[in-house]
Amino acid sequence: MSVALPSAEATRRPRLRVDPFVLLAAPGLLYLAILFALPLAILLFRSFQASDGTFSIAGYIAFFSDPHNLSVTWRTLKVAILSTLLCLVLAYPTAFALARARGIVQSLILVAMVLPLSVGVIVKAFSWSIVLRSDGIVNQTLLALGLVEAPVRLLFTETALVIGSANVFLPFMVLPIYAVVRQIDPELSPAAASLGAGPFFRFFQVVLPLTLPGVIAGVAFVFSLAISMYVIPSLLVGERLSTMSMLIARSFLFFRDAQLGSTISAILLLMAVIVVLGSSYLVRHVSGGRA
């Protein structure tokens, strides 16, 4: 055991001291506390407040007893899950291409990912409605190829919503996965191959577990963005297929029902928080503190 002496790690003791670098987060945290946490707390408080100011859960009862609200909640959830999945399928290979590409190619892929973010959602939504119209390029192509006999209804459907939102949120899936992939030692896959692991074994035993933290982060990002989107559904599907955000807006602006609006906000927030906390728990769990 000449070389295998106890490492410094064994003698190191954890110290109870505040790392001065933590203080660097103070301005950002203070900003968020005043402009995000405080209003949110007020909103939550108001969801339990009747119009006369007394405590009441009437808002929650009213929300869940209306089948329309339940179908909106279900649709919101479904669209968020589907667009998260669509993003994941598109983003996973892209992240690898981005990590392995060099020089100009890498820059081009990165720009292609980030540049669309600079185009406002409204501009995008209107351009999709041009493409997805019954006489738009998608339908014309489908008709020309003989795949359909009559134009397919694309606008004002959940499909349009999933396609549109995945389009906007794709970078938020690609970038966290890319950040993880670029950290992976490129020799790991060859090492696994030389140990007798075929392509599937390599993917499921090496590549996937190592990229999982990025996947989970991306899913948390995209899901929480997709579940609370407002502009995209307003422009693409309108009032016909509402989402929870639209319901919230309508409660506040149209019905002037602050309690209902606050209630729906609280429910929406809870769904997003569950996914975000759940995914950060998963990150710690799957990486086992080793990654």
Binding site: A191, G196, A291
Partner: peptide, 14 residues
């Protein structure tokens, strides 16, 4: 069935 020891060892970090 040819094993390789890599320069950076390429141990699986997970």
């Amino acid at each position: 069935n040819v094993s390789v020891v890599f320069q950076n060892y390429a141990l699986f970090p997970h």
